[in-house]
Design a protein around this nucleic acid. Structure first.
Length: 482
RNA sequence: GGCUCCUUGGUCAAGUGGUUAAGACACCGCCCUUUCACGGCGGUAACAUGGGUUCAAAUCCCGUAGGAGUCACCA
């Protein structure tokens, strides 16, 4: 059995789309699961769309996510170059295209943009262009004359109008398409560069790719590829088309969703490991239904035969949950290092940030959740006294006022401001007055935080802000309630 | 519009002829006698539809509907 070799072949056009990232991940996992080779190839045949710096994004993303390639522009594996513009410079694509012309599987086309434009029709609200094979019928002499005259040309694939072409995909099975549906796609553009479709076939073959892993959006063009492989007499690789990733409206995930790229997600505060983990589960599921996986564990468990066919909605809510799981699993020091700048955004006072960090660690899903959750440590926000009312502890504005008035002198006398000591004082007060803890603690917590929801209990908050500030806040609470 | 693919709860999904149709997120409830949260326990909720085949169908076949993808000198 030959060794598995997969590739990730992105175009340097900007941010890393999550669909792309998942394709890269699956390609990596399929190779590594079999101890195979994972290759990186840069597809920069579109000079217009090329974005400077985008190649760096690709390297950085692979590095950050741990999808280390064994071969690529920076790691020669003997089948380079690994950048298509460099391969194009070597003349490889033109050479193979001419071979196809010899075999009658391709032909020169000199049609102008205007003529092509005239072929454009609108159907079902969509504009489509179906080439009419106009140039297929040019004579040898006409072609030569055009070439000699320097008329710009493209090279097109020649697909017959009759019959069908079939191919086999590992996930979707056998798919058969009528040839009449297959357009005579352009192989070589007028600028001499190959199109994606053609470069892919030539490169995947010459670079020894055994398993072609790509997005479902290429499913319908796969038959054209097969014709090319067959025309060349090359062995067809194993096709693995990944199901589409969609937004909540079930349409292809686009920039409009706000989280269509890996960088978007990082910007929003998601952890790399969580993103990789989540994305792995979009279209694949292990037999035991486990959900939390490190990359190494994924390599071990991933079996592409368990991939699903149907498109998957990218659920940011579930990603948030998963991110929270990763945060909870972090060791405290690492967590604190990450969390401190976020805490600092809300708290400038000299408080025990580690205590605040500990409160927040199990309660956030992403780091940017922090500031809003702890802003009251800095300053009590304006609040409606209605929040003193609580059905369960039977608190009202009136009972709360009474509790605060009673507790104020107790706290004024209290010097040891630890959560335990404070709780003990409260307990004694409750005991003496026959009250439930919650009845007393509820108003204290509100007075001291100004919030109905806090990441910690009243006494913990008091410990952090200290005696002086606690008393100020309680007096202010009494004032508000009076 | 042609072609292709897809269709299990709101979402991710297990399931490959016989199951009380798993699990997770979200939602809801209860408990944790310090709220919310965390944690624990529990609950609501699904095989798009119509025909077959079969003793038996979410699973196989055909049709219908719905959704998506694609139809560039973009990848």
């Amino acid at each position: 059995m030959t060794q598995v070799k997969t590739r990730f072949a992105p175009s340097p056009t900007g941010r890393m789309h999550v669909g792309n990232l998942r394709t890269a991940l699956y390609a990596y996992l399929i190779a590594k699961h079999e101890n195979g080779t994972f290759m990186l190839r840069i597809e920069d045949t579109d000079q217009e769309r090329f974005v400077p710096g985008a190649v760096d994004i690709i390297y950085r993303t692979l590095e950050k996510t741990g999808l280390k390639h064994d071969e690529g522009p920076d790691k020669d594996g003997g089948v380079g170059p690994y950048v298509q513009s460099e391969r194009q410079a070597s003349g490889i694509y033109l050479k193979y295209a001419k071979e196809l012309i010899e075999k009658g599987e391709a032909y020169y086309c000199f049609c102008t943009k205007e003529r092509l434009e005239s072929l454009r029709t609108t159907t079902g609200g969509k504009e489509i262009v179906v080439y009419d094979k106009h140039c297929l019928h040019l004579s040898k002499e006409e072609i030569q004359a055009n070439l000699d005259a320097g008329i710009p040309y493209v090279i097109r694939q020649n697909v017959p109008n009759e019959g069908t072409t079939k191919f086999v995909d590992e996930i979707y099975g056998e798919i058969e398409v009528p040839n009449a549906e297959l357009d005579d796609m352009i192989l070589i553009k007028s600028d001499g560069f190959p199109t994606y479709n053609f470069a892919n076939v030539v490169d995947d073959h010459t670079m020894g790719i055994t398993h072609v892993v790509r997005g479902n959006e290429y499913l319908s063009s796969a038959p054209k590829y097969n014709r090319l492989y067959e025309a060349f007499g090359w062995e067809v690789p194993v096709y693995i088309h990944c199901p589409l990733i969609t937004d909540e409206h079930h349409a292809k995930l686009s920039k409009r969703s706000g989280h269509s790229s890996f960088e978007d997600l990082l910007d929003q505060g998601f952890l790399t490991e969580a993103i990789v983990n989540y994305v792995a589960l979009l279209g694949w599921c292990p037999t035991d239904n486990r959900e939390i996986f490190s990359l190494e564990e994924l390599v071990k468990e991933f079996d592409y035969h368990h991939m699903s066919k149907s498109p998957a909605v990218f659920d940011i809510q579930k990603l948030r949950w998963m991110n929270g799981e990763y945060i909870k699993a972090m060791d405290f020091d690492t967590f604190f290092e990450e969390a401190e700048p976020w805490i600092r955004r809300a708290v400038s006072k000299d408080l025990d940030l580690k205590k605040i960090a500990a409160m927040v660690k199990t309660r956030i899903e992403i780091f940017p959740d922090i500031p809003e959750m702890i802003d009251f440590f800095e300053e009590v926000p304006e609040y409606d006294i209605a929040i003193y009312r609580n059905k369960k502890s039977k608190s009202t504005e009136e009972t709360s006022l009474k509790v605060l008035q009673d507790m104020l002198p107790v706290l004024e006398k209290q010097d040891l401001f630890t959560s335990e000591a404070l709780f003990e004082q409260i307990r004694l007060y409750c005991e003496a007055n026959g009250l439930k803890n919650g009845f007393v603690i509820w108003p204290l917590r509100i007075a001291v935080s100004g919030k109905a929801v806090t990441p910690a209990g009243a006494t913990e908050i008091m410990e952090v802000i200290g005696k002086e500030e606690t008393l100020i806040r309680i007096r202010k609470g009494i004032e508000k309630l009076s």
